[in-house]
Design a protein around this nucleic acid. Structure first.
Length: 610
DNA sequence: TTTGGCTGCCC
DNA sequence: ATTCTGC
DNA sequence: GCAGAATGGGCAGCCAAA
C-alpha cells in the first residue's frame, strides 16, 4: 500500500468530528461535513469517506477486517499511554467510551510521563495525516497469523502515541467500528451532493450509484474526479453486490395493507440467511445481507444456481434455509448457522442441507430490473427459475384483503416461517435499497405479544452503557427462578426496550440491591459489571427461545451443555407486583421450549391439514 | 494438542 | 435483529 | 418518517495460553 501524494492532516477530520458530535441538527452536520470535503484532495476522498464510515473498505471486497476489538484496543491504549490495562478499562467503563478514555489519558500524559519510556524527541510530534493513519490501519488489518495480535497492538500503540488526544479519541472509535458522531451514509451522501452535485437535489443520483456499487468511497471518488455525469453512468454489474432493499415493521394487518396501498404481494418470511445470487455463465457469486461474499460457504447453492437459473447473466435474491430433506421441514435459524464455516464445507453440506426460496430479480441479461415494479420483477423471476425442491420461489399470494393476509400469516407460521413480508406492487414499487417508502413491510409473530412467550425475569446484574448510555447502565442480566434448587439462573441480557427515562431511573432502582459479588442464589457463567441481589422482576419479550452455551437456565435439561435463552430480548415493563420467586421458573421455560419445538416441527405433519 | 478468549457476522 | 430519540 | 445509535443470542475462525 503506497502513499499517495495528496494528503491532509488527520487533525482536520478530528476537529470536524468533534464539532459534529456536539450538535444534533442534521442540516448543520451536513454543512460541517461539506466544509471537510471541500478541504479534502479528491485523490483521498475515498479514504476520508471510509474513515467516516468506520471501515477500511467495503465488506464485499473480501479484504480482512481490522481484527481489533475492545480488549486489544485496551492493550494498545495502555501501551501507548504507559498506564495499566486495568486503569484504561476502568476509565472506559466510567466514561462509556474507550475513545474518550484514550483522549483523557493522552492529554494527562503529554510529554514527560510517556517520554520516560523512551525517546524525548517524540515530544515534537510530526503531524499525523490521513494517509499515514489509513495505511497504518491497513497494516493492522493485514497482520495475520502467529504473532499478529502483538503486531496489531504495537502498530496501534504507535499510532496513538503520535496522535493528539483528540485524534486518539477518533482513531480508537474508528477501530471500534463506529465514530459515534451522528454521521451515517445518508449524511455523507447529502454532503457529497451539496459539493459535487450542485445541491441535495443530486442526492437520489448519488444514492442510486451507491446502491449499485455498495462502495461510498468509490462513489465519492468518481464524483470528485469525474463529476456527477460519471455517477449517472453507473449500472448494475454481475459480481458486484447491490445494496439490499429492507423492510419496515408493523403489527397490524389492516394498517400494513393500507401502507402498501391496498393490493399487495404477501410472501413467507423464512428464518434463514438472505442471499443475493449473481450468475454469469458458469460463474456464481453469493452475497450476504451485509454484502459479504459468502460463495465459499454454499457450494450446493452455487450448483443449484448454475443449473436452475435459466439466464446467462442474472442477479436474484432469496433466503437460504436449513431443512430436513427426509421430511421437508424447515429447521431453525440456529441450525443454518452451522453452515457459517470455511472448513469442512462438504461434510457441513451433508449435515446441514439447505434450500433456497427466491423472492426477487434485480438484473437479467443486460437489463436493470431494480427500476421495474415488483410485478414485473416477479414475473421475470418466474420465467428464469427452473424450480426444484431445493431451489424455488418463496410461497406467496396476492391480495388486498385483511382476512386473507391473516390467514396466510398463520399458515406461514405453521409451516416454520417467522412471519410474512407484505410488498407493494403499485407503479412505484421499484427495488429501493434501504427502508424508505414503506414498499416492504414485515409482519412477524413476535410483534404480537399474544402470539409469543412473554416472561418475567429477575435482575441479577447490570452492565455499564456506552456512547449515549455512557455513565449509565446499558443493559441488565436477567434470570429465571429455579424453584427446585431455589436459585436464579441466567436467561439473557436485555438492553433494548428501555426509554431514556427508564435508564435514568435505573441506578436508583438498583441501588438497594447492588453488591460487589455474585449473590449465592445466583447461578451465572457471565460476569456483569455490578451484581444485583435478586429482587426486581421485569417483563421481557422475545421472538423465541434458543439453546444457549452461556446461560445457565435449565442447563442440561433440554440438551447437555446448553441452557435456555431468548432471541431478540427486549424490556417491556417492571413488575413491581411480583417477587423474585414469582418470576418465570426454569422449568416453565423448559416447557415453553418444548412447546415451541412442537409448533415448528409438529403442526405441519398432522393429516387433518388441508 | 487442547482450550478458551476475542472478534466478526448472521439473525 | 429491536427499540428509542431528535429533527 | 428518516437517520442514527443504543442494545440482544449465538455461531465459526483465529490466535494465544494452557
Amino acid at each position: 500500500m503506497s502513499s499517495r501524494q495528496a494528503d491532509m492532516p488527520v487533525g482536520l477530520l478530528a476537529d470536524v468530528f468533534e464539532r459534529i458530535e456536539a450538535i444534533t441538527s442534521r442540516t448543520q452536520m451536513t454543512a460541517l461535513l461539506v466544509g471537510l470535503f471541500k478541504q479534502t484532495p479528491p485523490e483521498i476522498i475515498d479514504r476520508v469517506v471510509y474513515l467516516i464510515q468506520g471501515r477500511l473498505w467495503p465488506d464485499w471486497k473480501g479484504l480482512p477486517e481490522i481484527g481489533v476489538g475492545e480488549k486489544l484496543l485496551v492493550k494498545a491504549i495502555a501501551l501507548a499511554t504507559g498506564v495499566t490495562e486495568a486503569s484504561v478499562e476502568g476509565l472506559s467503563k466510567s466514561l462509556g467510551d474507550l475513545g474518550k478514555a484514550a483522549e483523557q489519558l493522552k492529554s494527562k500524559s503529554t510529554g514527560r510521563s510517556q517520554g520516560v519510556t523512551l525517546l524525548s524527541y517524540t515530544q515534537q510530534r510530526t503531524e499525523l495525516t490521513v494517509n499515514r493513519v489509513y495505511e497504518t490501519l491497513v497494516r493492522v488489518a493485514m497482520a495475520q497469523g502467529e504473532g499478529s495480535k502483538d503486531i496489531k497492538i504495537r502498530l496501534l500503540a504507535g499510532l496513538l502515541k503520535e496522535a493528539s488526544p483528540k485524534e486518539a479519541k477518533f482513531i480508537v472509535r474508528f477501530v471500534e467500528g463506529r465514530l459515534r458522531v451522528g454521521i451515517g451514509e445518508a449524511t455523507i451522501m447529502d454532503a457529497l451532493a451539496t459539493i459535487y452535485g450542485g445541491g441535495v437535489a443530486a442526492r437520489p443520483l448519488i444514492e442510486r450509484a451507491y446502491n449499485l456499487r455498495a462502495d461510498l468511497g468509490e462513489v465519492a471518488k468518481i464524483l470528485a474526479s469525474k463529476g456527477l455525469e460519471a455517477v449517472k453512468e453507473v449500472r448494475p454489474e454481475v459480481g458486484t453486490p447491490i445494496r439490499p432493499m429492507l423492510a419496515e415493521r408493523l403489527s397490524d394487518p389492516g394498517e400494513i395493507l393500507e401502507k402498501v396501498g391496498g393490493d399487495a404481494f404477501i410472501e413467507y418470511k423464512y428464518d434463514g440467511e438472505r442471499a443475493q445470487i449473481h450468475k454469469k455463465g458458469d460463474k456464481v457469486w453469493i452475497f450476504s445481507r451485509r454484502l459479504e461474499n459468502i460463495t465459499q460457504q454454499y457450494p450446493d447453492v452455487v450448483e443449484l444456481a448454475r443449473n436452475h437459473l435459466k439466464a446467462d447473466e442474472a442477479i436474484v435474491e432469496g433466503e437460504i434455509v436449513a431443512y430436513d430433506p427426509e421430511t421437508g421441514e424447515l429447521k431453525p435459524f440456529q441450525e443454518l448457522m452451522h453452515r457459517k464455516r470455511k472448513h469442512d464445507i462438504h461434510s457441513a453440506i451433508k449435515e446441514y442441507p439447505v434450500k433456497v426460496f427466491l423472492f426477487d430479480l434485480l438484473y437479467l441479461n443486460g437489463h436493470d430490473y431494480t427500476v421495474e415494479t415488483l410485478p414485473v420483477r416477479r414475473s421475470k423471476l418466474e420465467e428464469v427459475v427452473d424450480k426444484v425442491e431445493e431451489f424455488t420461489i418463496a410461497e406467496y399470494i396476492r391480495t388486498n384483503k385483511v382476512d386473507e393476509l391473516e390467514k396466510f400469516f398463520l399458515k406461514a407460521i405453521s409451516e416454520g416461517a417467522e412471519g410474512v413480508m407484505v410488498k407493494a406492487l403499485h407503479g412505484d414499487s421499484i427495488y429501493q435499497a434501504g427502508t424508505r417508502g414503506w414498499l416492504w413491510i414485515k409482519f412477524k409473530r413476535d410483534y404480537r405479544s399474544e402470539m409469543v412467550d412473554t416472561v418475567d425475569l429477575v435482575v441479577v446484574g447490570a452492565f455499564h452503557g456506552k456512547g449515549r448510555r455512557g455513565g449509565k447502565y446499558g443493559a441488565l442480566l436477567m434470570a429465571a427462578y429455579n424453584d427446585e434448587k431455589d436459585v436464579f439462573e441466567t436467561v439473557c441480557k436485555v438492553g433494548s426496550g428501555f426509554k431514556d427515562e427508564d435508564l435514568d431511573k435505573l441506578p436508583e432502582i438498583l441501588k438497594p440491591y447492588m453488591r460487589d459479588r455474585r449473590h449465592p442464589r445466583v447461578v451465572a457463567n457471565m460476569e456483569p459489571d455490578v451484581w444485583v441481589e435478586p429482587a426486581l422482576v421485569a417483563e421481557i419479550i422475545g421472538a423465541e427461545l434458543t439453546l444457549s452455551p452461556v446461560h445457565t437456565c435449565a442447563y442440561g435439561k433440554v440438551k447437555s451443555d446448553a441452557g435456555i435463552s431468548i432471541r431478540f430480548p427486549r424490556f417491556i415493563r417492571w413488575r413491581p407486583d411480583k417477587s423474585p420467586e414469582d418470576a418465570t421458573t426454569s422449568n416453565e421455560l423448559v416447557e415453553m421450549y418444548q412447546q415451541q419445538l412442537k409448533k415448528i416441527t409438529g403442526e405441519t405433519k398432522p393429516s387433518e391439514e388441508a
